[in-house]
Nucleic acid binder design. Sequence first.
RNA 1: UGGGGUGUCGCCAAGCGGUAAGGCAACGGACUCUGACUCCGUCAUCCAAGGUUCGAAUCCUUGCACCCCAGCCA
Length: 565
Amino acid sequence: MTDTKTAEASAPEKAANFIRNIVTDDLKNGKHTGIVTRFPPEPNGYLHIGHAKSICLNFGLALDFGGRCHLRFDDTNPTKEDIEYEDSIKENVKWLGFDWGRHMYYASNYFEQFYNYAVLLIEKGLAYVDSLSADEMRALRGTLNEPGKESPYRSRSVEENLDLFSRMRAGEFEEGSNVLRLKIDMASPNINLRDPVIYRIRKVEHHRTGDAWCIYPMYDYAHCISDAIEGITHSVCTLEFEDHRPLYDWVLDQLPVPCHPQQIEFARLNLSYTVMSKRKLLELVQEKLVDGWDDPRMPTLVGLRRRGFTPQSIVNFCETIGVGKSDSFIDMSILEESVREDLNVRAPRAMSVLRPLKLVIEGYPEGESEEFEAANHPNDPEMGTRKVPFSKTVYIERDDFQEEPAKGFFRLAPGREVRLRYAYIIRCESVVKDENGEIVEVRCSYDAGSRGGSAPDGRKIKGTIHWVSADHAVDAEVRLYDRLFSTPNPGGKNEPDYRSSINPKSIEVLSGCKLEPSLAGATLENRYQFERLGYFCLDSKDSKPGAMVFNRTATLRDSWSEQKK
RNA sequence: UGGGGUGUCGCCAAGCGGUAAGGCAACGGACUCUGACUCCGUCAUCCAAGGUUCGAAUCCUUGCACCCCAGCCA
C-alpha cells in the first residue's frame, strides 16, 4: 500500500467540469492572461454547505489557474443585512482554508460609482424615474404569456429624470414613491428585461455607509458593475440567474466599464434529508426547533463544524459531487462518507462505552489493575500508542451482549468467548439480573494466557469488543446525532410541511457514558474514533473541563446492523 | 399557451463524430484483536422516435419529462 496517510494525499484529483473547461480555453486562446473570480455573499445569514460548493468552486478555480478570488459582500439591501453575518462569513471562508488576501470588497464601497453610472444612463435616455406604486408597476408588468405595458412616466425628459433622481438621493421622496428603472423593453419575453427597477428608496441606515444614502441599487444593476470594477473575468453564479444574464450584459454594454466579465451559471447544491433555504433554516432557529445556527444537525458551516466535520472533508465533498448544470440532488450519505474518509485517516482511536453493562471477571484478582498498550491507529504506527488500564470490573456495550444470541451475532453470549480488545479473551459464565429480569451484570472467566489479546494456542476468536475499566473510567455526556429530517426531501413537492418531517431521533443524549482515562485530556481541536462506534469530538459550546460533552460526528459503517434489516 | 435551462448506471459526473472515465451506493470475495479500514472482482449504450454518416451519447428533426422566471430580495 502506498502512503495515503495525509489529508493532502487523500484529496481527490480535480475533476473536469464545464467551468474549468471554459477557463482553460479562455487562457489558451488568449482571451485572458489570468483569471479573477469572486465569492459574493450577501451578509444576511449564515453560510451553509451549499455556499461551500460555491466557495470551493470560486477559490478553487483561482488557486488552480494561478488567479485570485475576491471576497465581496453584496451589501446593497440594508434592511436585511448586518455586520454580525460578515464576521461569521469571513471566519467560515478562512476555516475552509481559503484566503482572499487583500482582496476584500464591498458593493457598498461602489455606491458613488453606481450612482454616477446611473446618471449616465439617464443622460443616454436609458433610465427613467418612475412614480408608480409597486402595485401599479406589477399590474403593468404583464404576465409570463402577455407583454407588459409601458409606464406613463416612461417618457419623462432627461432633465426631469436627472432632477428627480438627484432629489431621490437628497431624500425628498418617501419610500416607495419613486424608483429608477432601466428603459429596455416592456414587451420582452424575458421578464427581467421589462424595465427593471435599479434603484429604490430606503430610508434606513446601512451597516457600513450609515445614513449617507437613502437610495440603494438593486442586485441586477450593482452586481455586474461590481464585477467589472474589480476586473472579474468569470462571474460564477447559480442557475436561477441564467435569465438575468441578458440584463447583466445589457448594463455593462451601455456603460464605460473597465471590462465585461462572463457570467457562468451552475446548479446549486441540493442535499437529501436536510433543508437548505435561508427561510427554512431561519425558521428552524427562530422556532427553536434546533439549538441555533450552530446546532450540530444544521447544514450550516458553523453547525457542521460543531458537529466535528473537518474543513478538508467538506472541501473533498465539494470536489466529489462535481459541478454541472443539471438539477442535482446529492444524497446525504456522500457527505457522511466524506467525513469518515478524512477522519479515518487522522483520528486517533480510543475506547468508550456509551451504554454501559457491568462485566466482572471472576478469577481476576480483586483490587488489582494492569495496563495494556493500545495502538492509537491500527494502520498508522507513527501515531503511537497509549496505556489503557484494566481491572476486575469493566464496562462493555449493552449491545455487545445477547442472552439469546441472534443468528449471525458473534459477540458475547452465555458460554461464548470474546476478546476484550488489547486485553484478554473472556468467556461468559453467568448473568445477574435484577428483580425486573433486567440484566445488570455479566460474569466471565478469563484466559490469563491471552494477556494483550492473543490466544496462546492460536485459536481464532471471532468477536472483539471494546471496554473501559470501571475503576478508571471517566464519565461524560455523549450526544448522538442523526439526520435532522426523516424524509429525503422535507417540504418538497407532495410533501407535508417540512417541520413535520423532523426526525425525532436526530439527537439522543446519553449521560453516564464511560470513557477510557486518556480521553480526559481531549481538546476541542481533537477528533477521535471511538472504536466500533464512530467519530466523536468535544462539543464547543457545552463541554466543560470537569463535565465533558462529546458529539458524534458520524457513525462507522456497520454491516452488522445493515444485515439485521 | 411566453422566455431561459436540463435530460449519460440507484445518486453525482466525464465525454465535444471513432466505438461509454471516475466517485458514492449495491453485490460477490479476501484480509482483520474495530462486523471499521484496506484489497480484489461484478455492475450503462447514453429521455424517446426518426434522420445524416463507414461510424453518433456527441450533428439534424420532431416529440416527451423535469427545473427556473411575473420582489421597489439576492
